[in-house]
Each structure stands twice: as C-alpha cells, then as structure tokens.
Design a protein around this nucleic acid. Structure first.
Lengths: 114, 114
DNA sequence: GTCGATTACTACAACATTGTTGTACTAACG
DNA sequence: CGTTAGTACAACAATGTTGTAGTAATCGAC
C-alpha cells in the first residue's frame, strides 16, 4: 500500500485541494510560493505532478482554449481518492509526532538567534 | 541557508524533542513506530541521524556504560538550535498550506473507502 | 484568411538530496 | 569468552531541484 509522501509532494497536494477547479501549473506554483515564502521552480511542479499522476494519486485533463493573448491550453489537476488518503495519513502522522511539542519548539526556534 | 527537511527527518527531529534526555537509536525508533504506526528499520534511524549531525542540526555524544547485561554504550542525540529552527519552519510551512483544508481532506479520505 | 511575432504554459533530461534496507561490527556484562 | 544491546555503513530506490527546450494558443499586419 501507499508509500509515504515527500515534503514537497504534500505541499503540492494541499495546493490542489485548495485551488479546486482552478488548479494548474501556474496557480499551483503561485499558491505554494505565497503560502510558504519559499521559491519554487516551474519545472519542479510539473515533474512532481507527473510522478503523482503515475502513482494514481492525482488525475489531469487538458482544458479548453481561453480568450487570452498567448499561451497554450492549460492542463488541470485534481486529487484522486487515493491521493486524499495518502495526504491525510502523512499529515496526521506528522501531527501525532508534533503533538504537545509545538510551543516548546517555537520557543527554541525563537531564542536561537536571527 | 537552511535547506528544507524531508518527511522522515521531521519525524526524527520531533522524536528528539519529545525524548529529551533519553534520545538514542532505540528509543527514537520506538517513538516513531508507536506514534505513526509505520515500521522503521533500525539502520534508517542511524543513517538519518548522521546526516542531520553532518548538517549541524543535531549533536551527539557517547554515554557512560550502564549496569545492563550486554550491549555497548549508547550514543545520545539532541536538537541543535539550527535544527529547532529548521524543524519549526518546515512544520509551519505545512500548516500554512493545510490551513482550513483539514476537515474537507478528512471527509475525502474517509469517503473513499479502506 | 494566413503568417509570423509574441506569449502562457508544459515537458523532460540530468543531477542532488533523502529514504530505505540489509548486514557487519563493537563494546559492554556476567 | 559467550551473549547481547546497540551502532555503523554500503548500496540502492525514491524524491527534490534545476535548466532548457518545445508547443499551442492569440493578436495584428497585410
């Protein structure tokens, strides 16, 4: 059964969940960058999306052309049920490990410099 | 600056935090297994601990002999300040991505069968 | 209408870091 | 010195990350 998810994979799947109908390469990337503050290469998004689709955790389809200046058609992505289960399991695991420790961790992280 | 932490690395660091004075290979392994329900090889723990130590996120020292039947001396581990910061940052990133989505995710994960 | 210039977006190869496993080794006590 | 708790490490698999090339769409000139 389900191998566990890497860290970036988790971020990616959460982005899919949040974006719902509007999840494609560019919006996914932007969502992760904005929320985490870390910079994400475009290629990284597509590479990981493809792997997740190969594993059956995500599905995708090509959308219709839009009346925008340039650009090719978007490929949209959505969570599969198995993807939701995998993501939930990973996140719960981490929460269980973290339970009760966050305040102390926060203090340690603050104290120790810039 | 701080690369980001992998998933297992995060679990490991949380275990260190929880175990405080009593963190060494065997207890760390047991803590992760019990809380997450996933099985962990002994070697995995030491491999990852060593890498984290190389990166300066963890420190270790060899303890004194104990009055137990057999066994060699334990090597104890503890979080370094930079480790606390890295762990906190990773966990916060994930929480920000997950914010507001967990109930929906839980429902999706439940519905979609065993 | 059709032909390119322009543009939003996707695909992928290549390399780096993390994850995982199995097996061998060490040092303690009785 | 036999037994045993514990550690180290080599080797391979999966995930993370980057750069660059390719594709398919619209617009505007003609």
């Amino acid at each position: 059964m389900a191998r566990s998810l890497g860290e970036f994979e988790q971020l990616l799947l959460f982005a899919l969940l949040r974006l719902e109908e509007d999840a494609y390469g560019v919006t996914i990337r932007r969502d992760i960058e904005r929320r985490t503050g870390r910079s994400v290469r475009v290629g990284q998004v597509y590479t990981v999306l493809q792997r997740l689709e190969d594993r059956g955790l995500v599905r995708s389809w090509v959308g219709d052309p839009t009346p925008q200046r340039g650009g090719r058609r978007k490929r949209f992505y959505a969570l599969e049920p198995s993807g939701a289960r995998a993501l939930y399991a990973s996140y719960e695991n981490l929460r269980r490990m973290a339970r009760g420790l966050v305040p102390r961790l926060a203090r340690l992280a603050e104290i120790s410099g810039p």
